[in-house]
Design a protein around this nucleic acid. Structure first.
Lengths: 325, 325
DNA sequence: TGTGTATTCTGCTAATTTTGCACTGCAGCG
DNA sequence: CGCTGCAGTGCAAAATTAGCAGAATACACA
């Protein structure tokens, strides 16, 4: 959309923090860009940027302006999407951020499903911690966020929620693998690998430690779940994962998972949500619906499975049986 | 703001229903305007306007677009207003519509008060019926609406409300002038001059007639209160007015007013409100606050005055927007 | 049925705006 | 004290846009 080119320019400058860098990414000369910015500021009557020796930074007025600009751009996307929708073609782009390194597992499946229905819709997926996820929403870089126990900010508007109780993950040869459910004392009995504090699970675990008054034996801290999983193969530690981040029951892996007693670690919530008071483009809104539905479904499954496990009616899934050999 | 010039163009064309007429008001040639519109449509991929032999009309896509455009323009105003506010100067423009021909009496006073505080703020006031008032809000031609018993639309967001019970007005020589309070039978005993159906008072009166099962002796119907008041001087009729539309108690006029028994005609509500989910410019928001405060105050005054006139002292409350919803 | 009028749209040229290049001035850094 | 990275400026070229004249079209009304 041509008319919001100037706005896009300002947005880019604000994001890059320098007119020249912005000019690069915009593929125009810095002088042209510079002049447009000057023109806008002239028009507005106040400078949008503070000139620093190392570039530019948004002024107070600029902060107001940039919020407006990003709303404009996002809203234009929405309108285009709705107009495209009128003519039957469901197209558009959906940008999702996940607060949980292993969620892409789930998200990938959802996207694949959605794209089967609407191949003209494209996606971008970004993984970052919860606070960054909310920032991505407010800066309009993301349409949707899927986060675990988000900080309660006024900007986040939940569209769906499922409870997720932490699972302990470990190698099949770990001594604790024999138990079906682990209590707090079990967790204390073994070294643990923890996610970093930006992670929502870590928040729950820290809370549990505070409440119990004793500490887990933290030997490693990492924000990368691939690393954690791999490490569990080398040392008899345990770590944690959300049900939604676990591999499907049918998949055979050397990493097994066990329930944790609710009294040991409280249950958390996984949220799907958007920026408050924003109207999403058609594609994003539909995808959000789909994802919420899927979460509810997935949750129901987890719930049933969990209850049957706790009652110990059914055998543990294939993974443990195989690995126990 | 230059970047939304194209948007403003489209807006104007949509409002005037013809490219040429719009071009006139925009002070450019119709060809230039035409080309810009064609360019926008090209860019959007779908026509915004339907071409009719007598001009143009918004297409379905155009309806979506125009809503976006008006939001954008209004929001830009808000941003400018907030930015101006940063630098201490409280400036801006407030556009008010009233649903009641005699409200300007009250509004004028409010505007005068407000402008004493902030002389840099300008106003436009328009009088129209309730439905038109809401339309003015949705088309972003007005920031605020003050209406009596508005139709309950999803677009109207009340910010304040006061109860207003109808008063009967008549010449001082009218036989009924001797009574302090009029009942339904009193109203039936004399010819009446009614406002048109677009008026909220008329709505209440029609309802009362329906409920009572008998009709007032309507001799004249008019949408002009000046005319009505003047007519009352010539014939012994009565008409109706809201407390807020009455002259101040200190003013001496030949037209007097009397309470009406609540059992005869139900009490209505006067609302101050804005377009739902819109963020008003600073000046408009402040003026809205002031007006709500004044309404509450004025109501209190009316109440005191009324109590001195009539025996029945009944406290009625002012409901703020929070409680109203 | 014909004529007048109002509409949008299209070549073409002139005016205006925007761009890119080369350059200036400025401020921190080693 | 020069170097580097930065925003701003003068000027000519390029691109966009405006205005004019006119074509095509469809309704209104006699």
């Amino acid at each position: 959309m041509k008319h919001l080119l100037p706005l896009h320019y300002i947005d880019t400058v604000a994001r890059s923090g320098s007119i020249r860098r912005a000019a690069d990414t915009l593929a125009i000369t810095s002088t042209a860009l510079n002049r447009r910015i000057l023109a806008m500021e002239e028009e507005l009557g106040v400078p949008i940027f503070e000139r620093l020796p190392r570039g530019v930074r948004l002024s107070t007025a600029g902060e107001l302006m940039i919020q407006h600009i990003r709303t404009q751009i996002a809203d234009m996307e929405r309108v285009k999407s709705q107009i495209a929708d009128l003519s039957g073609a469901r197209r558009g782009h959906v940008s999702v951020v996940c607060g949980q390194a292993l969620l892409p597992h789930f998200i990938a499946e959802q996207i694949a499903n959605y794209r089967k229905l609407h191949p003209a819709v494209t996606f971008s997926v970004k993984v970052c911690d919860r606070t960054a996820a909310i920032e991505q929403l407010t800066s309009f870089e993301a349409d949707l966020a899927v986060v675990f126990e988000p900080l309660r900010t006024a900007d986040f508007q939940p569209m769906g929620r499922v409870e997720q109780s932490l699972k302990a993950i470990m190698s099949a040869s770990h001594p604790l693998a024999e138990k079906q459910q682990l209590g707090w004392s079990d967790l204390l009995s073994t070294p643990v690998v923890l996610p970093t504090t930006s992670n929502g699970m870590r928040y729950l675990l820290d809370e549990a430690m505070l409440r119990k008054g004793n500490e887990l034996e933290k030997v490693i801290e990492s924000d990368n779940f691939d690393f954690i999983r791999n490490y569990l193969m080398h040392e008899h530690c345990i770590s944690f994962q959300l049900p939604i981040g676990l591999p499907a029951a049918s998949e055979v892996t050397e990493i097994i998972y066990r329930d944790i007693d609710e009294k040991a670690v409280p249950t958390g919530n996984l949220y799907v949500g958007q920026l408050k008071s924003r109207v999403l483009p058609v594609a994003a809104a539909l995808f959000a619906n789909a994802i919420v539905k899927a979460l509810e479904f997935q949750y129901a499954v987890t719930d049933i499975k969990a209850s049957s496990e706790q009652a110990d009616v059914r055998p543990k899934q294939v993974v443990s049986a195989k690995d126990a050999e």
